[in-house]
Amino acid sequence: MAEFECKLKYYRQLKDMTQEQLAEKVGVRRETIMRLEKAQYNPSLKLAIDISRIVDAPIEDIFIFD
């Protein structure tokens, strides 16, 4: 799996959202959001775009690949 840094937690907290709320909005499980925030899961492009729209931040700022 490609290694990356994930700033999702920061942007999610800026929007004052819980993992549960974000998970529900993008249609995934809370565990998936947890893993995303720990950079233990490489999301699909669709999920990444959905997340970036909801937290209102560009994908490249949320998921930072080397």
């Binding site: 995934v28 565990e31 998936t32 893993r35 899961y41 999301p43 699909s44």
Partner: peptide, 8 residues
Amino acid sequence: DTLMDERF
């Protein structure tokens, strides 16, 4: 009864 998301 687990939500079948893309990770699933």
